[in-house]
Amino acid sequence: AWCFVANKSFRPLPVRTFATLEKLIDAGMIYFTPNAFFSRKAKTTDALRWLNALYIDIDDPAATVSDVLDRCAELNLPPPSLIVKTQHGLHCYWKIKRVRATERALKLYSRLLRALTKAFDADLRAATAERFLRIPRVILHFDRAEYELKDFFSLLEDETLSAQSGGRVVARGILDHPAVKKLLGGVSEHSRNHACFTLARAFRYCGYSYAETLQELLRWNRRNDRGSDPHRDSEVRATVKSAYNEKQIRPPAASWIRELSGMPFSYRIFEKRGGGKPGRPRKIEETREKFIATIQAAGGTLTTCDSRKKLAAQLGVSERTLNSVVAALIAEGSLTVSTTRLGRGKGTETTYTIASQLEAACSESCKAIGRGGGSESGMRQVLEDAIECCFKFSDVTGRNHGKDLAFSVKLLLRYRKKYVL
């Protein structure tokens, strides 16, 4: 495997042996990567081969070894294997029994790294697996202890409980939030890369194309602090590309926006869907509404010669969805369906009636034909007659079907009983 070292220019130099490492340290290198990579060509997360250690960068010049050890005891974590004094604070390393950097392991490792960083209130920008850290110069604590990732799982338990404060926005409106606007106004030298990726995700999530986002962020890069080492446009291009190469379109991490802007920020995603078959319950609900609206538009009773398939096509849904909606409506008693054969070669006619409509129509028609003035007793009369008709129909045809009741009611509302009979 390969590691990388660098001097203050951060240009990565690959290292494969301890002898080279020693030589390069002598030559004045300042940084190294604690984790190892597949090739000498790429110092990127997806090129990682071995995960060797968890580490944090505490940015507090007043922090001491005993502070770190106390915090470890509080959090029920093992003490670090190595604590190094830096100009601005401390670097702490927990050596882990090396883990192959598979996608899964890397995901877990990254979560742990972030959780560890948060638990020590350390610098979140340092919490990436391919990070450069300072070659230890002033070692304050060194213990050859080796741990496993599972020794740190306790950190993940309360991860979900971490408080999110204020400033809620709907994810779609992310770009209008003051915290994001602050980032769009330009950032300092040390957060450019993270800010660029975070903003690229925000743009992508809000529906910007790759080209549009790139234009926005190149313009944004001109607003950034130039610093001693200006952020190159090619780096912006690479970062935007990596955000657009992600398989899923994800909103930016709220924690990053908080960290980079220093402002409270969180959002809710309203489009979130339940597990299992994504989108299915929603589709059913929509279909149900559409279907009921169609029947109501036809006056509460829809009589059609169209097949279920054709009806589904008219509603713009699949036949399967419509079938399950109809079945559910029948089961809950909100809908009655009756089918009439029209005669040789003329196909069938189907009538869908909404139950509440049936009652209302009943009372209305009762009024019209002067039976009880639309009162409850009038409705009951119609139903009783309908039942009588059904029995008669069943006598003649031998058919006994619940759906015929609705059909009889419909006829009785239009014609006198004796004609129906």
Binding site: R16, F18, L21, S81, L82, P136, I139
Partner: peptide, 20 residues
């Protein structure tokens, strides 16, 4: 020397990833 100590710590961290 600090240099040797640094190398010793790095050897420990990078053990198995780099070769002799």
């Amino acid at each position: 020397s600090p240099q040797e100590k640094a190398l010793e710590a790095l050897r420990f961290l990078l053990d198995g990833s780099l070769t002799e």
